[in-house]
């Protein structure tokens, strides 16, 4: 395992050096306790301590609006727009989210737009030593510890940042900037201590084993819990739009003013919106808000388990933070646990 040490006094030099190579995106404070990934040019702009950003770093892999085709009266071309970039400061929950999306878009038929962008993004993770707030359930979703999916991974200590170098790309960055020192045994033992302490802080947030959540969902499709959500959900789609693993999209044409040329783009869409499952004839296959909320939960805790053998919830807590109707993921799961006790529990 390769580690490298960056003294805090050199952090700004590092970001400046990295920004000279490619765009650098990092969490930035937006006030009111909120953060967002934005382009930065120096370390002073970066919030090293932050709670999950309003939008997840998904937006760089699958932009909110993305041109997929351009056409004129005599040509049609499939296109991809991309920017080589490095995303600094990705928490472990969001690394897990990106891993989920990688599976979805790498599966056949492959999504080349996603894959081209993915290949142009360098990921630098950042460890959380403590919970961000009461909405997180990362321990339950096993995403509180780094579990791959990054080129470099940073753990912050008082005087220095310890980088885990995971890929050759990461190694190249460390070498090219010339700002790092080699880590020795003391650095590694300090990391081990840090992780040990972390294990005592992060505890399974709900009284259910991770592997049992899928079993719970096998028996709660017709639960009254969903009816209750029908009364509360405003169908604003916030939970979808902030989710690191939601990937539904709409496809829209935008003609230019000549009306003969233009672009086709895809845009994030939300299964919570009224029109999402409506067909042209008018039939709506998920008219009830409760059924739409159920669909969202099943897309996190049941359907992907069948297809990708993992949960598509990272425990980041964004859906709970963004919900005006106070629909909190941990509460909903707790209601389900209470209403549908598992036989072995």
């Amino acid at each position: 395992m390769a580690y490298a040490v960056l003294q805090k006094g050199r952090f700004d030099d590092f970001i400046v050096a990295l920004a000279a190579q490619r765009k650098v995106m990092a969490p930035v404070s937006k006030g009111y306790g909120h953060f967002e990934f934005e382009e930065v040019r120096s370390a002073t702009e970066i919030a090293l301590r932050y709670i999950p950003t309003i939008l997840p770093p998904k937006k760089y892999f699958m932009p909110q609006r993305e041109t997929i085709l351009q056409y004129t009266s005599d040509s049609i071309e499939a296109v991809v727009d991309f920017d080589p970039m490095a995303i600094f400061g990705v928490h472990t929950c969001d690394l897990a989210g990106i891993q989920c999306l990688n599976m979805v878009f790498s599966e056949r038929p492959k999504d080349y737009n996603y894959l081209v962008r993915k290949n142009n993004i360098i990921i630098i993770g950042l460890e959380c030593g403590d919970y961000c707030d009461q909405y997180a359930s990362c321990a339950m979703m096993n995403s509180e510890m780094p579990n791959g999916g990054y080129d470099l991974f940073v753990t912050e200590f008082d005087e220095y940042l310890l980088f885990h170098v995971s890929t050759q790309t990461g190694e190249d960055i460390v070498k090219s900037t010339g700002l790092f020192e080699t880590a020795d045994a003391s650095h590694k033992s300090r990391l081990a201590e840090y992780r040990k302490k972390k294990k005592s802080i992060f505890k399974k947030e709900l009284p259910i084993d991770s592997k049992d959540i899928a079993l719970l969902f096998d028996k709660c499709f017709e639960s009254k819990v969903w009816d209750e959500l029908n009364d509360r959900c405003l169908a604003c789609g916030n939970c979808n739009n902030v989710c690191p693993t939601c990937y539904c999209f709409d496809v829209i044409d935008e003609p230019a003013l000549d009306l003969t040329s233009g672009v086709r783009y895809r845009r994030w869409d939300s299964c919570q919106l009224e029109t999402f499952a409506r067909v042209a004839g008018g039939a709506n296959f998920r008219e009830n808000r409760g059924a739409r909320q159920r669909h969202r939960y099943y897309r996190k805790f049941s359907y992907p388990v069948k297809k990708f053998f993992r949960y598509f919830c990272t425990g980041c807590g964004r859906c709970s933070r963004a919900c005006m109707a106070n629909i909190r993921l941990k509460d909903v799961l707790m209601d389900l646990i209470k209403a549908h006790p598992l036989d072995n529990a």
Binding site: C248, F249, R266
Partner: peptide
């Protein structure tokens, strides 16, 4: 079955029937 098929690639989500 009729659903709102959009991307045809099993991704955009509009036509999903449970899993």
């Amino acid at each position: 079955l009729e659903r709102h098929m959009k991307c045809g690639l099993g991704r955009c989500g509009h036509c999903q029937i449970e899993n």
